[in-house]
Design a protein around this nucleic acid. Structure first.
Lengths: 117, 117
DNA sequence: CCATTGTGCCTCGCAAATTGAGGCCAGTCA
DNA sequence: TGACTGGCCTCAATTTGCGAGGCACAATGG
């Protein structure tokens, strides 16, 4: 009878390595800025997963350093600026590879854990 | 040993956190010893995933410290000893919870990456 | 008018997990 | 003898996420 809240976070360690995959997938839908990414993930997961800034920005910068994504500043009407991140061709390719890897990974674990109940 | 090429191994970071899940799942089939676990995983994955000793033993010891598994030494015919690890009731329960978490995790990533291509 | 909240970018130190390397010992086989 | 396999383990370095914090500016509301 435990209050299994829907906000039960997924084991942090499981998230490791999945962040670039998430980011690139999201950016495939179009350029986004950091805050927006966090909100989008939070909403789409119904609040179960809140991407932390301390994880997001370093990951974003790393993807930019490897030229899988680019960034550019855009000024809003109210004069404030946002930094948008957009996927690059190299990022698309990388994403494709990562997706494949992801599927292999899931298959592997599933093979041991057993198929979904 | 056969000539199984080291197929592109799954991203190391993806593996993080999945180890306890794998171990408990394996031990559900019966007690095993370290070397045997490594070999089993290697064979079942067709060589794509070789569990490293530096990852295995610490994980095993941690699971034992939390009493999810136990260990005992068994002497072989040739006089040598092996350390077997066996799952405990608490481990079974923990495994069930972890499985659920795993499924949630997969669902979440799938939601962003998109269903299997 | 000022204070709080929300937006929006970022960095730092800590904790946890894997890797790759290495150590140690005992059988086996040539 | 020496090389190889089986078998247990540890350690430093690396990588990653987390939590907490800093900075800045807009909009809101009492």
């Amino acid at each position: 009878m435990e209050t299994t809240k829907p906000e039960d976070p997924v084991d942090r360690e499981l998230l490791k390595g999945s962040t670039p995959l998430l980011l690139l997938s999201l950016l495939c839908e179009g350029p986004m800025y950091g805050y927006q990414i966090i909100e989008t993930v939070r909403q789409r997961t119904g609040g179960t997963y809140t991407l932390k800034e301390g994880a997001l920005y370093p990951a974003l910068h790393k993807l930019e350093a490897t030229e899988f994504i680019t960034s550019y500043w855009e000024t809003q009407e109210n004069g404030r600026e946002r930094r948008y991140y957009a996927i690059q061709p190299a990022g698309q390719a990388f994403l494709a590879a990562k997706k494949k890897e992801w599927n292999q990974f899931v298959d592997m674990v599933q093979a041991f854990v057993g198929p979904r109940a």
